[in-house]
Nucleic acid binder design. Sequence first.
RNA 1: GGCGCGGUGGCAGAGUGGUUAUGCAGCGGAUUGCAAAUCCGUGUACACCGGUUCGACUCCGGUCCGUGCCUCCA
Length: 461
Amino acid sequence: MAKLKLHNTLHSKKEDFTPINPNDVRVYACGPTVYNYAHIGNGRMAVVCDLLARILKELYPKVTYVSNITDIDDKIIAAAKETGEPIDSITNKYTDIYNEDMAALGVAIPDIQPRATQHIPDMIKQIEALIEKGHAYAAEGHVLYNVPSYEAYGALSGRSRDEQIAGARVDVAPYKKDPADFVLWKPSTDDQPGWDSSWGRGRPGWHIECSAMTEATLGFPFDIHAGGSDLKFPHHENEIAQACGAHGHENAPEEYARVWVHNGFVVVEDEKMSKSIGNVQLVHDLIKDHKGEVLRLALLSAHYRQPLNWTANLIEQTQNTLDRLYRTLKDLKDVEAEKNIPASVMDALCDDMNTPAALAALIEIAGNAAKADESEKKKIKGALLSSGAVIGILQEDPDKWLGYDSASSEDAEEIESLIAQRKEARENKDFAKADEIRNKLHSMKIEIEDTAEGTIWRKIG
RNA sequence: GGCGCGGUGGCAGAGUGGUUAUGCAGCGGAUUGCAAAUCCGUGUACACCGGUUCGACUCCGGUCCGUGCCUCCA
């Protein structure tokens, strides 16, 4: 059995993964704030974490994968104000859309998908523990985390406290004891959502929800914490301070999460994806023009820690790759699959999720199909299907994928008739007419293939 | 300014101290009336300059370029 290695941001190196409890591997990933559509960068994080969960589920009997929904946040409040739509209706709507869009990318729903608003009491409890242990203080309706009180602060992002102050570009609120202190709880006005607490009616700061929800759903410490690399600081750093501070692990950041996995960013046609450039690619839109499976594999075409350049060419190449693999599966249609993930694929996936190498291994296996004997064919088909299941590809019917199952299409009769006419023309050696018919079919997005068993056709594009 | 990451053949993208993935595109061939699909063959690339070494694309130092975070952000 392959041994999983993961790059652990906490130690800045690739390490053997050893679960705390092999009978229940626990993983958490920071999920979306639901106030608009998810973009392809959100999609990358979801796909990478989904892949991680699938690999772990392959290796261990039980895996609990938790990814949250942030449904209380000032951006949501602002969106509600702007649109006049109630907050609940915004968050419910975009939660559903998020889950639908991710499902299109082959992302399974997490084992637990907690919502921040369902865990307010857990947050309050953690904040109270922090106050009790001297890590937090109330001031003017706020509760703040006192950063100097937590010695190990900076362990994840690798920056010293002095560096943070030097880099601080925000105005320091007067009620802060230290410029680096951050908000755990803040007061709400009457028109803002709020919950009663001993510090008055208010709402949580951004960071507290994750350390409260991980504690509620997974317990401390848990195995793997994942997220986008931009969350390292301050979000993940603050989570560690909150979780460890509340439980007396003063200098032991690994008592929160043992392994930290951070994925790289997506750029679009060599440009940073940003609202101001206007090049934000929404998953919701992309799935209208492309198969979700193509988008998924495109997101996995580079190593997850590398930047990914999202281009039209990338999508096209990925489509070609999948077409080819599905064609191999079509050729093996009558072969009984002997399911087994080949070591070359699993080793690559276990090597810090090296998806390009895993895909190369899979393509190499597929390439052997044509000259394989019957028993090898069974293994090849099984390898494609079972490897594909882990990566999240190749589970469709090949005929359907390639467009051969269009018998139900409304113009099937016309197509068949044209093919018959072409056949007749060919028999009469009237090749000009035969080619003309073929061109006509092509303009109808129909591609024909003359095979030993006669002419077959498929829908393209 | 601080911390970090990266520069690989036309493009995408792994990897390794010495046998130089993989895909797409290209080129040549087989097959085909022509196509399509498939198959076979074909490309010694690793930013620059030094150093270590029997040997470096891979290790060390420097240079240039690009890029992320330090503020909401996947």
